[in-house]
């Protein structure tokens, strides 16, 4: 199985070209919208809209399937478990001892599952179309302190190499006869100490040499930072932001001002 740690893939769709700040705000608004909407029909429409965007982002099938697999599994779990823990309403469809499955509960389960699907997929659009460095740049421009931005960028950057270190450590210990599949639960979890200790040491050593490397490249020498790449909002960005804001505002006012049930 391939693991995509960085979901971003190069591309030149309008979603790739959009200002990362607009993308972050849009994703936040669409996430909130998933909570404003409360019927299965409106949520399904939102999900369809998100899928359309996902499709337009031209992410490869492999990548999309990798990401969606987890979501679909989670959605299925919600649909199955919801009616079991929520016995309210009539008509009752099935009764088995203390477990009562009612029609409204089944619908509530489906509604929640679709909502979770919306929340997950909308964030996938952001991850698929925005490079990590642009995300961090956007967050810094939106007011995140630069140090924290750099910390975030470094952790994202080193995550894959840290995973590679862990897999190399696991190999090294297996080569010394460590069998992770043998023994009971406690014995087995104890075996992971042999991986955990070298992994933590490796991480600390990396952090140590990285901080030296940063200092020797004069990090922190001047406090007012300049940027080589400036983020600039273009007409298209404003249009996109307006559309998404309308998408959010209209159902919100309809629901709370005019009490229309969506």
């Amino acid at each position: 199985m391939t693991i995509f740690i960085d979901l971003y893939s190069e591309g030149n769709t309008f979603l790739h070209r959009l200002d990362p700040r607009v993308k972050i705000i849009s994703v936040l608004l669409l996430s909130l919208l998933a909570f404003v909407l409360s019927t299965v029909y409106s949520l399904a429409a939102l999900l369809a809209f998100i899928f359309l965007l996902l499709f337009l982002s031209r992410a490869s099938m492999g990548r999309t399937w990798f990401a969606l697999r987890f979501v679909l599994r989670f959605m299925a779990l919600i649909v199955i478990l919801w009616p079991i823990f929520d016995p309210a309403g009539t008509p009752v469809w099935a009764e088995l001892g203390p477990v009562k499955v009612t029609e409204p509960a089944v619908w509530r389960g489906i509604t929640s599952a679709v909502r979770v699907g919306c929340l997950a997929c909308v964030w996938y659009i952001l991850m698929f179309t925005t490079a990590q460095r642009d995300l961090v740049r956007a967050l810094v421009r939106m007011g995140l302190r630069f140090d924290y931005g750099l910390t975030l960028a470094i952790s994202l950057r080193f995550f894959p190499s840290f995973m590679a270190t862990i897999s190399s450590i696991t190999d090294a210990q297996k080569a010394r006869g460590l069998d992770f599949n043998r023994g009971g639960l406690i014995k087995r979890s104890k075996k992971h100490v042999a991986v955990l200790v070298p992994a933590v040491v490796a991480a600390l050593r990396t952090a140590d040499s990285l901080s030296l490397a940063l200092q020797s490249r004069a990090y922190g020498a001047r406090t007012d930072r300049t940027y080589m790449r400036q983020l600039k909002m273009r007409t298209f960005d404003y249009v996109a932001l307006t559309i998404v804001t309308m998408l959010f505002i209209v159902p919100l006012t309809a629901k709370y001002l005019f009490l229309v049930h969506f």
Partner: peptide, 17 residues
Amino acid sequence: LARIVGYVFQNPDHQLF
């Protein structure tokens, strides 16, 4: 297989714990 083939990894720090 480790009984037959011993492997000394490139980085000793990947095994010391």
